[in-house]
Design a protein around this nucleic acid. Structure first.
Lengths: 210, 210
DNA sequence: CCATCTTTTGAGAGCTACTCTCATTTCATG
DNA sequence: CATGAAATGAGAGTAGCTCTCAAAAGATGG
């Protein structure tokens, strides 16, 4: 049957055969999707085509990803960012912490796998600005990430995570940061994204601790 | 055939018969939708049912509203808000202006048609927090309104409407305000929404003029 | 009032994302 | 190798949405 569709990262060596296969199909589906989108565009790409190229059935595609948009967008980095935020010194201001962890995770990704940043991240951003369905999904996931971030923000400021101020401030930040990346994409990725993010954060007050 | 499905506001007297009929079907579709949603919920309500109750064909429904979510959400008030902002004194700070016009338009709507605010607005807010598809659509339209608002913000601050700062600041505001209404809805509309909005705006810097 | 032209509508076919069910295959385990 | 559990495929079904084309309804000029 289908073997060696993809090669796995070293980190996956200790997984059971089942788990490894699952990971493989997951990656195969995502790669197939990226390929097809680059060839034909997002809308012209059907789930059936994706399934064909990934050598699985359409049912399987939906078993791995709830929606077509999720194939493109699913990432597992958000909780990581929250952990990073938690590990910053407590006397640092919230905005400074954010600046640091964004810078940190971006340079991390950049040195770890530069082609990923160039190819995948920019494709995502492009789809986000161009395809309404994808953008909606991004915003949807933004409000989920926002909830996570709320907890971290609450910790740092000694407030409750359900405080109006915490929630409103956090979602304001997320909206602004999202807009910054849209701006960057619309301007053909000119200039340093990190600079734009600095300028973005500079338009915010610090949320006072209490 | 179908006559007198709905009564029209006085403002529509001078329209041609054709225009008046169009308006009627539009309103009929929306009312049918609201009714069905209150009876069965959003997802359980199909476009076919909506068409049946509004006494039109499904094709017609889609001719009037591009998507099912739009039936619930379409409003034509956003440009009005931008005009209001434009009419505020130039020496007033941006945040103060926003506070004023939000207060103004809400009390206007409240005195004009209180049942609308109670019924329709709260239904919308509830759908927005509960139905993912609707929320996405709201966010989508938020970024459109954001563009409008950018122009007004740019005018007031003597910046360009495509400035990173303008765009980022504006979208931050919109995200925060949206979150405030979600907060209000989740807390069963307790307390004064206007107070929540004041507290929301208080978490923002003023965007300096240049 | 009638004829003609234009706009709006309805009927229906078609596409695709997404769900569910059930039988079959593939891996894990004693 | 046998038995149980998990993953897959095949297929049918739903609903949102698009498109086409012919019929109905409103506008207009004589």
């Amino acid at each position: 049957m289908t073997t060696a569709r993809t090669s796995l990262p070293e980190a996956a060596r200790h997984l059971s055969l089942r788990e490894r296969k699952k990971l493989k199909t997951r990656i195969a589906i995502r790669n197939a999707t990226y390929e097809l989108i680059e060839e034909q565009g997002y809308d012209a790409t059907t789930v059936e085509q994706i399934a064909d190229r990934a050598e699985v059935s359409p049912s399987t595609v939906f078993r791995y990803f709830p929606t077509k948009e999720d194939i493109v967008l699913t990432d597992e980095y958000d909780p990581l960012a929250v952990d990073l935020l938690r590990s910053r010194p407590a006397d640092e201001s919230l905005l400074d912490s954010l600046r640091s962890i964004i810078r940190q995770s971006m340079t991390m990704a950049m040195t770890d796998d530069p082609s990923f940043v160039e190819r995948e991240m920019k494709l995502r951003l492009r789809l986000m600005t161009e395809v309404p369905a994808v953008r909606s999904r991004v915003m949807e996931s933004m409000s989920l990430t926002g909830r996570l971030l709320c907890r971290a923000v609450a910790e740092r400021t000694g407030r409750d995570e359900n405080d109006l101020e915490v929630r409103v401030y956090t979602m304001g930040l997320m909206g602004a940061l999202l807009e910054a990346s849209i701006y960057w994409t619309e301007h053909d990725y000119q200039g340093d994204l990190l600079d734009l993010i600095d300028r973005t954060l500079a338009t915010f007050k610090d949320l006072p601790k209490r």
